[in-house]
Nucleic acid binder design. Structure first.
Lengths: 225, 225
DNA sequence: ATTTGTTGTTAAAATATGTCAATATATCTG
DNA sequence: CAGATATATTGACATATTTTAACAACAAAT
C-alpha cells in the first residue's frame, strides 16, 4: 500500500501527545498535519483534503464529539476518536455520531496504526475515496469525471457529494431531504433534476435506471452492481 | 433497517457466554446460530450463508485465529473476534489475519451491537439483496423487481411489504385485515386489486394462480414452490 | 464582448397508485 | 341445481409523485 499518499490530520490540545502521534505516523510514511482545537481543524479541513482524522474528544471549545457530528453531516471523511480509557458509553456515543473507530487512551501506537490501515483499507475496498465503479461506469471523484462507454462526462460538486454519500451505503434509501442537505440544494424538484442528470452520466439507459433508482414516496437508492 | 434478515453465527465454547450473546442478538432482531468449536462452525458455514461471525479466540481445538485465517482465505465473511481483555498484541494479530474487528472480554452487549451494525453497514449492504424465488419468478425485494420469463416487472412498496411478510411464512393464511395493515391499504376491494396485480407479476398463469392463492372466507396464502 | 456551457429553479407533462364501480366468475348451502 | 354470497377482473378516476423540458442567472471560454 502506498501509505505516503495519505494525509492525516491529528487534532489534540495536548501538544505532547499530538506531536508523539505526528512523529510516529510520519515515520510510518503518512503525511501529517496537526491542529489544537476544533476551529483550527476546520480551517485546515477546508484547505486540504485529508484522508483521515485522528480526533481527541476532550478539547477546550468544541469537543471531538461535536466536531465529528458537524463534519459527518457534510462530508464522509473517516474519523478515529481518542477517548479517555474505560468510557464505554462515550465511545459508543462517538460511533453513533458517525466516527469510524475509537481508541482509549493510553494506547499502543501500533494499535493506532492498525486502526488507520484498517479504515483506509475499508474505504478503498468500498471505493469511497478514490476510484469506483457503478455498473460499468467508472467514477473518478477526485477528477470529478465519469467514464461510460468510452465517453467521459464531468460531474459538479453537488453531484460528487451525493455520489460520495450514496456510495458509502449502497442500497440505502436516501430521502430528498437527506440529499438536499448533502448537496445543499433546497428545492425538491431541483433534486429530481440533479438525479436525472446524474443518471445520464452513470446509466446506459437513463430512462430505465438500473443503479440510481427512484423509490416512490421515499427518495432514491443507489446500487453499485 | 431490516435487521431480521441478517444471519449471525456465534462461536464460543463457553455455553453461558454463547447463549447470552445469542439471546441478546435475537432480541435485537437477528437470526442467530451457534457453534461450540471450529469444526462445528465450519459445518454450519457450509450449510448456511451467514452474514457475520462472532468468534471467540480461545477455544479447544482450532483457535479463533486459525479459523479466521482459514475462512478468510476462501471467503470474505465478516468476522468479529472476542479476545481476553488486555491482550493488545493478540488483538492486533487477529486483525492482521483478516478479522474485521475485535472486542475484549468482558464487553458491553451494546458495544457488540454497534460493532455488528458498523460492519454490516460497511460490508454487507452492497452484497446482500433480498433475493428469493416464488416458483420460477425471481424476486429482488431490494431493487423492487420481479423477473419472470425474462421479463422484469417492478413492484411498489405496498407489494413489497406484503411479499416480505408472506415470504416469511409461506403457507400461512393472511386475512385481508392483516394484509391491509401490512400494506396500509384500507379498502378490502383495493386489496383484491393489489393481489390481482401481484399475480400478474409472479404467476405464469395469473388466472389460475399456483402460488398466491385465495382462501375463500379467510384471505390469501402464498406458496413458494 | 460574444458565445458557449453549467446549474438551480420552475411549470407542464407523464406516470404510479389506491379507490371505486360494473360486471364476471367461483364457491357454498340447501 | 338454484340462489346466495364471496371473490376476480377490468377500466376509469383522482390524487400524489416523478420526469421532462424550458428558462434564467451565472461562469467560462474564445
Amino acid at each position: 500500500m502506498e501509505k505516503n499518499k495519505y494525509h492525516i490530520l491529528v487534532v489534540d490540545d495536548d501538544d505532547k501527545i499530538k506531536n508523539l502521534i505526528k512523529q510516529f505516523l510520519i515515520e510510518k510514511g503518512f503525511i501529517v498535519s496537526t491542529a489544537s482545537n476544533a476551529n483550527e481543524a476546520k480551517e485546515k479541513i477546508d484547505i486540504f483534503e485529508f484522508n483521515l482524522l485522528v480526533l481527541d474528544v476532550m478539547m477546550p471549545g468544541q469537543s471531538g464529539y461535536e466536531l465529528t457530528k458537524e463534519l459527518k453531516q457534510s462530508r464522509n471523511i473517516p474519523i478515529i476518536l481518542l477517548t479517555a480509557k474505560g468510557e464505554v458509553e462515550n465511545r459508543i456515543h462517538g460511533l453513533e455520531l458517525g466516527a469510524d473507530d475509537y481508541l482509549g487512551k493510553p494506547f499502543e501506537p501500533k494499535e493506532l496504526l492498525l486502526r488507520i490501515n484498517n479504515i483506509i483499507k475499508a474505504n478503498i475496498k468500498q471505493n469511497i475515496s478514490l476510484k469506483s465503479k457503478i455498473g460499468i461506469a467508472e467514477l473518478d471523484l477526485n477528477r470529478m469525471t465519469i467514464k461510460l462507454n468510452q465517453k467521459i462526462k464531468k460531474i459538479n460538486s453537488s453531484e460528487k457529494k451525493v455520489l460520495l454519500k450514496m456510495l458509502a451505503s449502497p442500497g440505502k434509501i436516501f430521502s430528498r431531504n437527506e440529499i438536499g442537505k448533502i448537496s445543499e440544494i433546497s428545492q425538491e424538484r431541483s433534486i429530481d433534476v440533479m438525479i436525472t442528470r446524474l443518471r445520464k452520466k452513470i446509466e446506459e439507459d437513463p430512462k430505465n435506471p438500473k443503479f440510481l433508482q427512484t423509490v416512490r414516496g421515499s427518495g432514491y437508492v443507489l446500487w453499485i452492481k
